[in-house]
Design a protein around this nucleic acid. Structure first.
Length: 842
RNA sequence: GCCCCGAUAGCCCAAUGGCAGAGGCAGAGGACUUAAAAUCCUCCCAGUGUGGGUUCGACCCCCACUCGGGGCACCA
């Protein structure tokens, strides 16, 4: 894709017009010719059509993360879809009814920004790009079931976003609140927490600021515990890294809420702490400066001016400022005091930005001896530091380092002498008894902010009525389609462009008929992708988002393939949606993706490809130079799928060479199809069955690069057998080459199909079936055992693979070399591991 | 700062605690050829980041460190 949406296509058959006879055409492998030849035939055969009525094969749902139509496919797509294809094609060969669908994640800002630039409609750009990507995917020979395609920007699809939104609203899981939200000044819209990466907008890298706004949220925090606990069933099936990232993101912490009486205030203030055992060490209290509590506490204290100017200052700070390391602690003394409930100590109350208003209760007890942040603050404002846990480390007063470890409690009344865990238990039950506090949990996870102030998304299906309040758009009026972009100013300006479509906005309340207004925001596009995998089985159904029987047939997804960039965002939201739908009785499972494979990125010379870096490799150029199969093979063979592929390390021409070698074998075989393999050369047959066995195992354990290596070995062995062994007429040669064609078909479908035809078969090789491995052919005739003395290899002997430990030990001890080595010394110990090794400890 | 992952030949990468090398790239030589390309054959190269430990035996397990990559970001 030389440029976005240009529609550059994989070039086909430069030789097509050459006047060559058939013999010549087949004398050398011509990938361009072969690509051109098979596509129309596959269109007819449809080897990957899933869910035919008479299909009795067991189901398997293999899913690739769907693409955003930002232009033509690039190198990253090529890798992702090549890997997903290996899995899908493998399970088809193994006899499963595989559903491997594709769709387009088509709402989003790039389309809108392109439309602004060209003064046109985002629809045009989007559907053009989809057409280009679709055509490229066909040429790339993706094994998709093309009958299930949809686009999330189709009203037919986003209707169900709206329907789901209303369902969530009914259950109290979609709600509005005023809050200080993440604001991207570049995109001029709010962002979910998950879309702020190190203080920057994940989309445009602008520094994110805070803005007080009333916005729609999904109550994902209600599901925090289940999102955490259900990960147990994903253990070993999802990358450990993703599970860890989700655990950290949800960030469950356990501690206690404790009430502190405030002088001059009737209501006590509750604080959250993970260290109730250090309650006696609290020397001051800190409330979030931007909290309502701080604003209230400061009234009438005489420090209002100072407080307000501090508040102004911190509001001006961007998230980036907040993230700066070694940021000095700042704050304002509020001239108020709290009373420590356990010892009556009078604690000054400070307001600071190091306490977050939206975590816990927005107020903390500060224990500077045992919390580094509190200690930094205490040092900055010369507040007292009282040690209450003797950890054996240096006094924090002197070292400036808070001690957070375990130890004996001191200066803590009844807690003295206890260790940390016992002290926590003791103080918690005491606080509960006295009605002063109780154990509590908190989460780093925040509710999912779903409103967006942009045009190209799903309109939020809510009508605001002056008397009825929030009224959902009635189901029979869905989809609530987007107003025409014509005449609307899509330029980002902080409020939704939909607001200007007055005919669209002004509407009668569905309940009371009063003049009302539609909500003008659109939904975060991550809503679209949170349930799309449920739509595929029922993509042609119009009156429901998905059919119960389709869900029961196909879901959950058996294998999901996609980039690790979605480790938190999409995968967390999808898990949340699945749990909500499970509660609604609409799905019969609670985790959507049984197994997950994260593929790496395609990089160039060690860094991500980008135009500005000048290291962009165009997929179309690579395909033209080396052919589709060679590019796919290079991606798969480059290394483990989860590792990045550095395009400067791979050799597409090496891939071409291998494919040519394999292809040439198919022309050498002289026996007829259907010949009895059991009469074939034994050693080549063993090589074939070992390759089938090992490559299959490697594919199932995601070691695709190893699977390819096993096929390469078999190609080498077959070449040798044909040239100087059993010869091309031996049935074993046909068995080997047919197996090669089938294994190659996972990665290089064009080459494989061509081989299959040359071997005398009809298309499609994709449906040939993985040959059954004969266990008898996996046993070697003899193996080489090594004899070690003290771990050093002294001798190698050929033994039967069925030799016992005792027999092998006897052989070793009787061996002349060993007898000579040992001399008169009797071995102290002999370890035998038949049939591979004997180690003699002398 | 906290957490996670990795380090094997010139390069990319394989090796249930049991012979470090499966496969490929690059390189060298040979066969074929008038020649080249293509093809076929043969070969070269490390002792597994460093230092300890466990073990009959460690690339693999444990501890400490170095370097590289990733995640989180004042979450009390």
């Amino acid at each position: 894709m030389a440029c976005r949406g240009s529609g550059v296509q994989i070039p086909l058959a430069p030789r097509m017009n050459k006047n060559v006879n058939d013999e010549r055409e087949h004398a050398a492998y011509d990938f361009a010719y072969v690509q051109e030849k098979w596509l129309p035939i596959w269109d007819e055969v449809q080897p990957f059509k899933s869910g035919r009525a008479d299909d009795t094969r067991e189901k398997k749902y293999v899913l690739d993360m769907f693409p955003y139509p930002s232009g033509d496919l690039h190198m990253g797509h090529a890798e992702a879809y090549a890997l997903g294809d290996v899995i899908a094609r493998y399970w088809v060969q193994k006899g499963f009814n595989v559903m491997h669908p594709i769709a387009w994640d088509a709402f989003g800002l790039p389309a809108e920004n392109a439309a602004i630039k060209r003064n046109s409609d985002p629809r045009i750009w989007t559907y053009e790009n989809i057409a280009v990507q679709k055509a490229s995917m066909r040429r790339f020979a993706c094994s998709f079931d093309w009958d299930r395609v949809f686009n999330t920007c189709d009203p037919e699809y986003y209707k169900w976003n709206q329907w789901l939104f209303i369902k969530l609203h009914e259950r109290g899981l979609a709600y509005r609140k005023d809050s200080a939200v993440n604001w991207c000044p570049g995109c001029q819209t709010v962002l979910a927490n998950e879309q702020v990466i190190a203080g920057l907008c994940e989309r445009c890298d602008s520094a994110v600021t805070k803005k007080k706004l009333n916005q729609w949220y999904f109550k994902i925090t209600d599901y925090a515990d289940r999102l955490l606990d259900d990960m147990a069933q994903l253990e070993g099936k999802w990358p450990e890294k993703v599970l860890m990232m989700q655990r950290n993101w949800i960030g469950r912490s356990t501690g206690a809420n404790v009430s502190f009486v405030i002088e001059g205030r009737t209501e006590p203030v509750t604080i959250y702490t993970t260290r109730p055992d250090t309650l006696y060490g609290a020397t001051f209290m800190v409330v979030a400066a931007d909290s309502e509590l701080a604003a209230e506490l400061v009234v009438g204290t005489g420090v209002e001016t100072e407080f307000n100017s501090y508040l102004e200052k911190i509001k001006a700070d961007s998230d980036i400022d907040r993230l700066a390391t070694d940021r000095p602690k700042s704050g304002v003394f509020l001239n108020r005091y709290a009373i420590n409930p356990v010892n009556g100590a009078k604690l000054p109350i400070w307001a600071s930005d190091y306490v977050l208003a939206d975590y816990g209760t927005g107020a903390i007890m500060a224990v500077p001896a045992h919390d580094q942040r509190d200690l930094d603050f205490a040092k900055a404002f010369k507040l007292p530091v009282v040690v209450v846990v003797e950890t054996g480390e240096e006094d924090p007063n002197k070292s400036g380092v808070a001690t957070t470890g375990d130890g004996k409690l001191v200066n803590s009344g009844a807690l003295n002498g206890l260790n940390k865990a016992d002290a926590i238990a003791a103080i918690n039950s005491q606080l509960e008894k006295d009605g002063l506090g109780k154990s509590a949990r908190n989460y780093r996870l925040r509710d999912w902010l779903v409103s967006r102030q942009r045009y190209w998304g799903t309109p939020i299906p809510i009508i605001h009525c002056p008397s009825c309040g929030e009224v959902p758009v009635p189901a029979d009026q869905l989809p609530l389609t987007l107003p025409d972009a014509k005449g609307l100013d899509l330029k980002p300006k902080g409020t939704s462009p939909l607001g200007a479509a007055t005919d669209w906005v002004n509407v009668a309340c569905p309940k009371c008929g009063a003049a009302s207004k539609r909500d003008t925001d659109t939904m975060d596009t991550f809503v679209d992708s949170s349930w799309y995998y449920l739509r595929y089985p029922s993509s042609t159904v119009h009156d429901q988002p998905f059919l119960k029987e389709d869900i029961e047939t196909w879901l959950p997804v058996d294998q999901y393939v996609g980039g690790v960039t979605h480790a938190i965002l999409h995968l967390l939201y999808s898990r949340f949606f699945t749990k909500v739908l499970s509660d609604m009785g609409m799905v019969n499972f609670n985790e959507p993706f049984t197994r997950l494979l994260n593929q790496g990125m395609v990089v160039m010379d060690g860094s991500a490809m980008s135009k500005s870096r000048g290291n962009l490799v165009a997929l179309s150029d690579e395909l033209e130079k080396h052919g589709v199969d060679a590019i796919r093979l290079s991606m798969v063979f480059a290394g483990p799928p989860e590792d990045d592929v550095d395009w400067s390390d791979v050799s597409p021409s090496g891939s071409v060479k291998f494919l040519t070698r394999a292809w040439r074998l198919s022309g050498d075989v002289t026996s007829a199809p259907g010949v009895d393999f059991s009469k074939g050369d034994l050693s080549l047959r063993k090589a074939t069955h070992k390759a089938l066995n090992d490559a299959g195992f490697a594919v199932e354990s995601f070691r695709f690069n190893v699977a390819v290596a096993r096929v390469m070995e078999l190609v080498n062995a077959t070449r040798k057998a044909v040239d100087s062994g059993c010869g091309p007429a031996d049935p074993a040669a046909r068995e080997a080459v047919e197996a090669i064609a089938i294994m190659v078909s996972l990665v290089a479908p064009f080459t494989a199909e061509e081989m299959w035809e040359r071997l005398g078969h009809k298309p499609a090789v994709a449906l040939a079936g993985w040959p059954a491995v004969d266990p008898k052919l996996l046993v070697a005739d003899s193996v080489e055992a090594v004899i070690q003395i003290n771990g050093k290899i002294k001798e190698r002997i050929d033994v039967s693979p069925t030799i016992t430990d005792a027999e092998l030990e006897a052989l070793a001890l009787a061996h002349p070399t060993i007898v000579a080595e040992l001399g008169t010394n009797a071995p102290k110990k002999v370890i035998a591991r038949a049939p591979k090794l004997v180690n003699i400890v002398a």
